[in-house]
Amino acid sequence: MEYFSPDKLEEAYALLAKYGDDAIPIAGSTFFMSHREDLFDEVRAVINIKRLGLGYIEHADTGLRIGATTTLNEIFSAAVCRSGPFRVFSETVDELKINEVRNAATIGGEVCIAGEVDMPTTLLAFDANIVIGGAQGTRTASMADFHLGYLNNALKPGEMVIEVQVPQPRAVASAGFAKFERTAADLPIVNVTTRVALDADGTCSEARVAVGAATAAGIPKRSAQAEAALIGRVLDEQAIAAAAAASSDVECIDDFRASAELRSLWVKCGVEDALRRAAGQARAGE
């Protein structure tokens, strides 16, 4: 296994192109190192991408641009994430009660893992886009399209994630995140991010209900039914209950960690909790 630590993006692209499927970019290396028994035989080249200037959080009118190697804790403490429409990003990180992982794991890494992670669920709820770079140039995929299946993403050989873009939500918008685990330091069993945009009369004009970690598809999914149940309604307890009940369109997996039935229950509860938090944020006028 070879190791490279390029300081130019072109060099990184060239290495990725050269090693193709046998190369893996790393930043926080938390996933790679915790799975090394499985991965070492497959990987021929490890490419450290932390020296490529991809650690940044920029905020413009169009929204957020977060470099791929920005750590979870950097997101947590960024002013633009501590309050305002992107506050739920900080809240998402805060639900991971393992500081050491937050100091190492990056948004790019989390995005690439289609599975038991939290950030992609929130990104899905915000219609985020993933910017992919390679020797052939850059392209953009939506968060929804970026995940193909459990631990399977849309990167082609020679490509890597370089940036995550989160469009600025509409003026009055609020979001909430909820998570269910077996103990406080655990993989997520169910996570839910909701985001709503409210019109002047307080009714919901746009809704996103994203569910991750639990899905039979193995990747975060939106609940179309739950979202539909919110449109045109004020975000009160009845609307929340209706949306939660409607989230049964999310098919959940069944395994020794939790049954599908429990996961579905937690999806429902997660939608309730996340919407309540979003409603709380709306009331607070953020």
């Binding site: 009660k97 077996r182 103990t183 406080a184 330091a185 655990d186 993989l187 020794f256 960690r257």
Partner: peptide, 14 residues
């Protein structure tokens, strides 16, 4: 579940 990932022992927040 041969290790702490899925053999869950209690932590300081539980």
């Amino acid at each position: 579940n041969p290790n702490f990932l899925d053999y869950k022992i209690v932590g300081p927040l539980d």
